[in-house]
């Protein structure tokens, strides 16, 4: 049976990890490399690493840093931030990424998601969608790290990305992000029901119960979180134990004493 993934999200700006509230008020939360090492040792299910300095700029991804970060990462690593063409994807995969997340460029270069899928397979493209609620069950999407309204309605946009070849959707509520008040469950439920690809819930997790709700009530295939792991005593392992307690299938860790990593 396929397991529900718990995915720490690492936002990376200049030289360190940061975490904001509502995509703003960034706080430094430490260096990148030790965080990845610790998560790897603790066998998290997957990591998402987004370079938020690159969004909307013409700069290319920092392949050297990605190569350093990937050095000790033996769980899947999705890398995002500023990706605008498939040559960048090829280089990121060479550097140590296993898949990429695409957000702003999906709006400005409509062929990009399909091009990546055609070359590297749909499983390589995680479409990241940032969303604000307008009330009455309507959510609209934002590009450029949540700063530019696109006018797109989320269900229609999610379906379009699925049609173009996205393999997963990383769905983030801008308003909930960093608040630790819980995921936007109606949003996740609406998108998960509208597409056939997996939906990763993101934005708002503050305790394990929020993660259980995202899976059981809203139908998320995976739960991403940042603040809860940066600012509280709660851990990915604790999250998985809580999910298991709620009857959700989670990955068992493999014991191989001779193969410490």
């Amino acid at each position: 049976m396929l397991k529900v993934r718990v995915i720490p999200t690492l936002l990376w700006k200049n030289f360190g990890l940061v975490k904001g509230i509502g995509f703003d008020s960034w706080r430094r939360v430490g260096p990148v490399l030790p965080a990845i090492k610790v998560y790897n040792q603790r066998e998290v299910d997957e990591l998402v690493l987004v370079d938020i300095t690159l969004c909307g700029t013409d700069e290319t991804p920092d392949y050297e840093s990605i190569a350093d970060f990937g050095q000790d990462c033996f769980v899947p690593l999705a890398v995002g931030g500023g990706i605008v063409n498939i040559e960048q994807v090829r280089r990121l995969l060479r550097a140590g990424a296993d898949k990429v997340t695409v957000n702003t460029a999906a709006y400005t270069t409509p062929s990009l998601v399909g091009d990546i899928a055609a070359r590297f397979g749909v499983q390589c493209v995680v479409a990241s969608i940032d969303v604000r609620c307008e009330g009455n069950g309507v959510w609209r999407t934002y590009s450029n790290a949540g700063s530019v309204p696109t006018g797109r309605e989320v269900i229609e946009w999610a379906r379009e990305l699925e049609d173009r070849g996205a393999g997963e959707i990383l769905l983030t509520s801008i308003e909930r992000d960093g608040t630790m008040e819980g995921y936007d469950l109606p949003l996740i439920e609406a998108v998960a029901a509208a597409v056939k690809i997996p939906v990763i819930a993101s934005g708002g997790a503050g305790n394990y119960r929020h993660m259980v709700d995202a899976v059981i009530q809203a139908g998320a295939s995976a739960v991403a979180a940042a603040s809860i792991f940066h600012y509280t005593e709660q851990t990915p392992a604790g999250a998985k134990a809580a999910l298991a307690e709620a009857g959700i299938p989670i990955r068992q860790t493999f014991s191989a004493p001779a193969l410490e990593i």
């Binding site: 397991k3 749909v122 056939k196 997996p198 990955r251």
Partner: peptide
């Protein structure tokens, strides 16, 4: 839901293969 993405457990075939030495059924 497709793609099939994430951790899933394996069951070894009837003939043991040394590729799975030390890896039991149910390993993700």
């Amino acid at each position: 839901r497709l793609p099939h993405v994430g951790w899933n457990e394996i069951t070894r075939g009837e003939t043991p293969d040394n590729l799975f030495d030390g890896i039991s059924d149910g390993t993700d």
